[in-house]
Structures are given as C-alpha cells and as structure tokens.
Design a protein around this nucleic acid. Structure first.
Lengths: 186, 186
DNA sequence: GATTTATATATCAAAAAGATATATCATAAT
DNA sequence: ATTATGATATATCTTTTTGATATATAAATC
C-alpha cells in the first residue's frame, strides 16, 4: 500500500468530518462544491479511502457484497482522523501553482495573428462573467440559509473568493484586448 | 518514445520560437518568467526536447561530448516547429484547473480555531501584497524597454494579469478575515 | 419489458512533479 | 596552488495526479 504523501488524504478527511460518505459521493461533492479550487479523481479517492482505513483514520460500514457494482461502502471519520485533520489544518498551506493556458498563449502572441488572441480573450471574458454570476448566485443562496439560522460562513468565503478572482480575470482580459488592439493600430 | 500529448511540447516550442535554448536555460527561463502561470520539470523538458527533434520540430546543435556533465546541447525550432506552434496557438485554451490549499482549509474551517485561519490569511495577504509589488515592478521595467523602442506588449500583459489576480486575492483575504472575526464575536 | 441514466467500485496508462545522481566549469576562499 | 562552493547541464527514477475505462447494479423512463 502506497504512502500517499499528497493532499488527497486530508481533503477526504475534511469531507468525512462533516458526514459519512461513499467514494462516489465524495467525487460528486468535489465536482459540485470544490471544483473551482480543488479536484480529485477516482484514481485517488478509492485508494486513499483504503489507506485511511488502514491507518485507523476512517472506518467503513462495509455492506457485504463489495467488489464491483453497487456494494455501497460508506466511510466515516474516526477520532484519530479528526486529530490528523486538525493537525493538518494548522500547517501552513503550500504556495499554489497555477497553470493558465491563456497566459501561455498570450505570451507567445508573436506567433499568431492578433485576431486569434482577441478571440481567445473574448471566450475567456464570457466564461469569467458566467463564473462571477454563478458565484454570486451561490452567495445569495448561502445568505438565505444564513437567514434560516444555518451557518455556512466558510462556504460563503470560498464563493466570495470566486467572485473576486473571476472578476479580476475578466477585468484583465478586457484591458488586455484594448492593449492588443492599440498595438495593432500602430 | 512516448507520445506526449500534453502541453510541454508547445511550451518549449513557444520558447524556442524566440531563440535557441538548452534544456537547462528553458528550465531557468520558465522559473523566472513563467512560473506565475506555468511550470515544467526537467523530467518533462529533456524527454520532450528529444521528441521534438524526433518529430522534426526542432534540431539540436549537438556539441559532441554529451552524456552527463556539460555537453551543452542547444535546440532550435524548425519551420515545421513554427507551423505546429502556430496551429496550437489557434486552438481554444483549455479551462484551467486551480488548486488553492488555502481555500480548502477555509472550507474545512469548522475543524480548527479561527485564530489558525486568521494566521493563514495573514500569511496569504502578505504574500499576495509582495506579488503585486513584484508584478508592478516588472511592468515598470517593461514599460522602460517600451520607451527604448523594444516591444514587449505580451510580457506586459501577463504581468498585468498578475497585478489583477494577486490584488483580488489579497482583497478577498482581507474581507475574509473580517467575516471570520465577526463570526467569532457572536 | 426494454432502454437509459445515475449510482458505485475499481484499475490502468499516461502525464506531470519532485527529487536526485552525475559531471563540468567558474570563481571564491584558504 | 589547491580546495570548496555554486552555477551550469543532462538524465532518470519514483511518486502523484489525471483521465479513461471496465464492470455492475438500481432506479427511472419509455
């Protein structure tokens, strides 16, 4: 069984901390709620769940007929798991490494026509505008829940981050278009 | 020899398009100028350079005594390489997948004390302020070059993106701190 | 009853990251 | 002069991560 020094372990522990989950629901939940700032694949989730159990950080309510198919295996966090999670929470987050293909293409701009770059920027603007809208809707929904007495401060904070970042990306792209057009006019 | 369907191929072609380079200088250049939005490791650069030569997209001025050590191998792009690069430039950039460990820790906020989160946010604010400063300095230097008649529009655009994004991240973190403190006061 | 969709576990190949081994050359310190 | 250090340079190996796919079942739709 591999060592798994990556972050998958803690992501899963963090999710299990709020409720028991199957590998499948972990994946779905990640896709819906975390995908803007984190992603995990089945190839990491299932092996990591086994490691978690082997290390005593989680237990599985193994509903008999496993193997393939629908032998639903529900995982729950243990006290040891909560302790491990809490220790990781204190560790300084690693510096993020981002990969923006659009910036790569912008920096290689000399190798194409400016119309191509403008086209990419237009797509990018549209996408980021949509994301800002999406994040704002998400904020509203969470604010309603807050009105009902349900605390979801931390989810609101991550959505708020989305609003900030996607707006900034959009603003940049609008400015970038202007600058490329000015360059072309010379 | 592996297929290498990833982006490394085009990143290297894009760099070779401006001047001939060794694997080492490609890595250094990436670290200095591209690291904010792209990164490649030696484990990708050296094999990819060989693939590029095998596919006729680059040629190497193989200075004899290779193997280990300092048998400097300089790679240059070919016409076929420029064509391949130009075709890739037209392709729609893939949607970026980001991994922000700080957002993960914020969303798992219930599993630690608010002081821990505030500490992470303070570090994050400091780092992003520095990055904004760095990006602005970079912009200034490039604007001077522009005054000297050297066009570096595309480098300025990527630096400008940094200014926008890092400012947005900093602003978010400041706001997030406030919200977490308010929550704590209840 | 048949077909499709969602649920669910599992694994494999490929891509990417990270670390490290090896060797050389330049330069700074002793 | 010699030695140590650091930058240059290629190369590779392991681990991580991704992406795709195989398998199977339950539920829903037609």
């Amino acid at each position: 069984m591999k060592e798994n020094t990556g972050k998958s372990k803690y992501v899963i522990l963090g999710m299990l901390a709020s409720m028991p989950l199957t590998g499948y629901t972990i994946k779905k939940w990640l896709e819906n709620e975390y995908s803007h700032f984190w992603q995990e694949s089945y190839g990491q989730i299932y092996p990591t769940l086994k490691v978690l159990v082997a290390q005593g950080l989680a237990v599985c309510s193994n509903k008999g007929e496993h193997g393939n198919g629908r032998g639903q295996i529900v995982y729950s966090i243990t006290e040891a798991g909560r302790k491990e999670l809490s220790e990781w929470m204190r560790e300084k987050p690693e510096i993020e490494k981002l990969r923006y293909e659009i910036l790569l293409k912008i920096s290689f701009g000399e190798n194409t026509e400016s119309e191509v770059l403008i086209g990419h920027l237009d797509d990018f603007i549209r996408r980021n505008e949509e994301l800002v809208k999406e994040m704002n809707q998400c904020m509203e929904q969470l604010n309603q829940l807050k009105g009902d007495g349900i605390d979801c401060t931390y989810s609101r904070l991550t959505a708020l981050c989305g609003v900030h970042v996607y707006s900034a990306m959009k603003d940049w792209a609008v400015e970038a278009k202007k600058i490329i057009n000015e360059k072309g006019e010379l």
